[in-house]
């Protein structure tokens, strides 16, 4: 038997495709955050006012808070199953860099929640009176922002691995860290709606994403190692 070692890159690819295939076989987990996002956004016309003019004013906040909470909702399951069935142990002992595997899992989480949430935002935006011209800006800002949310969330999910019923704690840990994303994202959306240039907050969102991509997988890997002990 000739044995060819798997490279770190293809190991990460395996983890990514495995998570995507698992999600396809269990679509309810995929749909839940989207449904949650829709319900939260659609509660505002009912709870506040059906007047599109007024809704447009709060649309940035509604869209971003909704996306933030929905992506958080999907976080709890990010590591939980892998931890309970022994998969994370195998990730640690398989000789591959854990940071790469964590990055792959985070990417899978973003593809399964952040990206669909982003694509859904314009639809909800229309219901909140957002003009069509603002959609590209909203899409782009959410695309950048949800990357950072997934990265922050992976760290939080890793840290709460050893905690019983850690769902509430997970929100408590990640929400303050997500404040900058919320601030810059909502501002970008606001500028997009009023038809101004949103490059300023977009750059800031991009900077946060780069910082997150650099540091968050390291922190998540350290957290997972500790959580398994």
């Amino acid at each position: 038997m000739t044995v060819r070692r798997t490279t770190a890159f293809s190991a990460a690819g395996l983890v990514l495709t495995r998570d995507l295939r698992l999600a396809v076989r269990r679509p309810s987990q995929l749909i839940q955050p989207l449904a949650f996002f829709a319900v939260v956004a659609l509660l505002f016309p009912l709870g506040y006012t059906p007047e599109l003019g007024k809704l447009r004013a709060i649309a940035p906040g509604v869209l971003w808070v909704g996306a933030l909470l929905a992506s958080m909702l999907a976080l709890e399951s990010l590591f939980r199953e892998d931890a309970s069935d022994g998969t994370l142990e195998q990730f640690v002992v398989c000789g591959q860099p854990l940071v790469a595997l964590m990055a792959a899992k985070t990417l899978a989480h973003w593809l399964l929640t952040g990206l669909p949430l982003t694509l859904m935002a314009p639809v909800l935006g229309i219901a909140l009176g957002v003009p069509v011209e603002a959609m590209p800006g909203i899409l782009f800002s959410l695309l950048l922002g949800t990357v950072t949310l997934s990265l922050i969330g992976a760290v939080g999910a890793g840290l709460t691995l050893g905690v019983r019923r850690g769902g509430v704690l997970l929100s408590l840990l990640t929400l303050p860290l997500a404040v900058p994303v919320l601030v810059f994202g909502a501002r970008a959306t606001e500028l997009a709606i009023s038809g101004e240039s949103l490059m300023g907050p977009l750059y800031l969102l991009g900077a946060l994403a780069v910082l997150g991509i650099t540091l968050a997988p390291l922190a998540a890997a350290a957290a997972v190692r500790i959580g398994l002990e």
Binding site: L159, G162, V163, R164, L169, I226, G227, E229
Partner: peptide, 15 residues
């Protein structure tokens, strides 16, 4: 909250 949530002291310290 994280400290309080983890029973094992060493793990709570490091997490």
């Amino acid at each position: 909250g994280l400290r309080a949530g983890i029973d094992d002291l060493g793990r709570a310290d490091r997490a």
